[in-house]
Design a protein around this nucleic acid. Structure first.
Lengths: 335, 335
DNA sequence: GGACAGACTGCAAACGTTTTCATGGTTGCA
DNA sequence: TGCAACCATGAAAACGTTTGCAGTCTGTCC
C-alpha cells in the first residue's frame, strides 16, 4: 500500500543504485546489466512505481503531448476526427489532450491557452474561419507547429476535403436526379468557413448547370423562428424540390422538422447533407450526403503535425470525398 | 519573435525582479505593488510568456488534471459524457485528459497507465465489468481517486442510471402498448455490464408481468451472421412483436437491417433502444428509448471526483431515467 | 526618537527526471 | 605485462516553478 507515489530516487535507494541507473532501466534498458535491470524493474513493479512524465517533461523539455482543439464532440464528425488523431498519435508515442470550444471564440482562446500552458508540442484544430481567428494568430505568433483540420487556408497547413468541389458534386448529382430548384440550408455562416465554401460550391455549380440560383436559408439557432423560416421557404410560389443542408446533423434535424409539417422525405421533398457521418447510413431512408473521411482527416492531420515535429514540414492535404447514402434524394421524372 | 519559449527567470531578469516575484504576479497578484505587477505582466505579454504547467506541477506536486477513460467517442453517449465532465472540470480549474479504449482491455490498461504517468489527480472511467476489470484493480491498488461512469458497482463509487429498473420500465411500456412477445438484442455481454443488467431487467419485468420469456439474441460484431440471426429470429413460429436493443446505436442499425429485409418500423415490427442519445429524437419515426442523462452523468461523476480530491468522499449516484421518443413502438390492438 | 506593524520583495531549496562526463573494472590483444 | 577498448554505473547539474522564511523599507503611534 504505497500511500504516496514513490519516486525514482526512492527506488534507487531501495535497490541500492543511483537514480541515473533507475532512469536508464526504463529509457535505455540495453545499457544495464541484466541483473540490475531486473532488480530495478522488480522493485518498481512491487512498489507500483512508474516514472513521472512531469519530471521527465521538465528535464527533457518535451512533453510528447499533442493538443486537439475541436468545436464539439456532439458532432460525430469531430468525434471521428479525434479518434483518428488519437490513434495516430499513440502509435508515435504521443499523448493527446483534447479540448472543445463549443463554437465559442472565447472558449476557443482559453482552451488554446490551456493547451499551450501544458506545453503541448503541436496542435490540431478546427476554427470558425482561419482568416479571422484570433486564436490562430496567437498560435502563429507563438511559433507552435499546428495543422488545421476541416478548415482550408492558403496561409496555414490544413487537412480537409475540397469543400467547394464536393458541394458542387452533390449539386451535380441532384441535377442528374432531375432536381432544378434547390435550397441551401446552413447554420450561421460566420461560425463555419466550411459552410461558406459549401454554399459557394452550390451556387457555382448550379450556375454552371444553368439551374435557377439556389435560395440560401440560414437557421442560426434551434428556435421556433427556424421552423417558420423553413415553412415560408416551402410555401413560396416555386418551392425547392431539394434541400442541401450544410452538414448531416442539420440535415437530420431538417428531416425531423419536415416530418412534423407532414412532409415525407424523399417522397414530398428531397434532402441531403454533408459529412457522411456513420450514422447517416443507418437512417431509413439512408441520408444522402457528401462523405468526408473524418477519421483520416484526424490521422492525416496528426501525421502532418508529426512531420513538422520531426523537423520536416506539414503539407496541406485535400482528401477525396464521395457521395454516400442517397435514400433521401428522389429521382424526379423528367418533364 | 521568441524563437524559444521564455521562462519565469528570463522575465525576472528582463524586468529586474526575482523569479519569486514573477511567479507571484501570476498566482498571488494581490501581494505585489501595482507598479511591479504591471511591469511584469506587460513584459510577459510582450514576450508571449505564460507559466509552464510542467514546472508548476512538478514543484507544487499537483497537475490539476483529471483523466477520462471511455470506450469510444463514436458513441454519442460517451461524447456527451465527456463534454459534461469537461465542462464541470474546467469550472473547477482542472484540465481533462481523454483516452479511449475501443472496448479493448489491453488498450484500456495501456491508456490508464498513460494517464497515471501524466499524474492525473483522479479518473473517471467506464469499464466492461467492474468486477473483472484488471484496470480497476490496479487503479484501486494505486490509491488514485476514481469514479465509474455508467457502470454500477457495490465496491466502487459510480454514477449511472438504474439499468435494471430502467430496462424494466421500458418492458412495462411495451406491455402497456400491447406487446407480449419481446426479444432483447445486445452486443457481446462480456463487453458491457450495462447490457447484462438491462437484459436482467427485461427478463425480470417480463416475468413479473406474466409475459412469455423474452428471447435474447447477441449480435457480437457487424457480420453477415448477425443478419442471419435476426432473420431466423423473425421467422420463428411465434416471432416477437418488439425488439428491445441494449443501446441506441444498435437499435438504429437493427432498424436499418430490418429495412433491407423489407420490414417497416413500427408498422411491421416495433423496436426500441437504450441511451436516449440526442440523435434518436431526430430519427423518423423518433427512436423509442430509455433516456439516460449522459452529460449529467459526466458532470456528476466529475463532481464526485472533485469531492474526493477536496478531501471528502465520492458517493455513488443513480440519476433518473425516462422514456423518450416513441415513434418506433406501435400500439398493438388488444385481441 | 524609538519601537513596531505592515507592505513588498528576495533567497534558496525542492519537486522528479535526464544526461553529460567521469570512473573503475574487465576483457582483448600484442 | 601493458595498453586500449569497452562495459556498467555514479555524481551532479539542469529543467521551470513555488513557497517558507527572512529581509528592507515605509509609515505610525506613543
Amino acid at each position: 500500500m504505497p500511500s504516496s507515489r514513490p519516486s525514482l530516487v526512492q527506488i534507487a535507494e531501495r535497490v541500492g543504485v543511483s537514480p541515473a541507473t533507475v532512469s536508464r532501466a526504463f529509457n535505455r534498458p540495453e545499457l544495464l546489466s541484466d541483473a540490475t535491470r531486473e532488480r530495478i524493474l522488480a522493485t518498481a513493479r512491487q512498489l507500483g512505481f512508474r516514472p513521472s512524465k512531469v519530471g521527465s517533461s521538465l528535464r527533457s523539455g518535451s512533453t510528447r503531448t499533442l493538443g486537439l482543439l475541436l468545436p464539439t464532440m456532439s458532432n460525430p464528425v469531430f468525434a471521428a476526427c479525434f479518434e483518428g488523431a488519437e490513434e495516430r498519435a499513440l502509435k508515435a508515442g504521443y499523448s493527446v489532450m483534447l479540448a472543445t470550444t463549443g463554437y465559442d471564440s472565447r472558449r476557443e482562446r482559453a482552451a488554446a491557452h490551456s493547451l499551450l500552458d501544458h506545453r503541448v508540442e503541436g496542435m490540431i484544430l478546427t476554427v470558425a474561419d482561419p482568416a479571422r481567428s484570433a486564436t490562430l494568430a496567437e498560435l502563429t505568433a507563438s511559433g507552435l507547429p499546428f495543422v488545421l483540420a476541416y478548415n482550408e487556408s492558403d496561409r496555414h497547413p490544413f487537412v480537409s476535403v475540397d469543400n467547394l468541389a464536393a458541394a458542387g458534386d452533390m449539386v451535380e448529382h441532384l441535377a442528374a436526379s432531375g432536381h432544378r430548384r434547390l435550397a441551401m440550408i446552413s447554420g450561421p455562416l460566420d461560425a463555419s468557413d466550411r459552410a461558406s465554401k459549401r454554399l459557394d460550391g452550390v451556387l457555382d455549380r448550379a450556375a454552371r448547370l444553368d439551374l435557377p440560383a439556389p435560395t440560401h436559408v440560414s437557421m442560426p439557432r434551434h428556435t421556433a423562428a427556424d421552423r417558420d423560416r423553413l415553412r415560408s421557404l416551402l410555401s413560396s410560389p416555386r418551392p425547392p424540390t431539394a434541400l442541401f443542408c450544410s452538414n448531416d446533423l442539420l440535415a437530420a434535424s431538417v428531416i425531423a422538422e419536415l416530418a412534423t409539417l407532414g412532409l415525407r422525405v424523399p417522397d414530398d421533398l428531397s434532402v441531403c447533407g454533408f459529412d457522411g457521418m456513420a450514422f447517416g447510413a443507418l437512417m431509413v431512408p439512408s441520408l444522402a450526403s457528401v462523405h468526408q473521411p473524418s477519421s483520416e482527416i484526424g490521422s492525416q492531420a496528426c501525421h502532418e503535425l508529426l512531420n513538422a515535429l520531426g523537423g520536416g514540414s506539414s503539407r496541406s492535404v485535400r482528401l477525396p470525398h464521395r457521395l454516400s447514402g442517397g435514400g433521401t434524394v428522389a429521382r424526379l421524372p423528367v418533364d
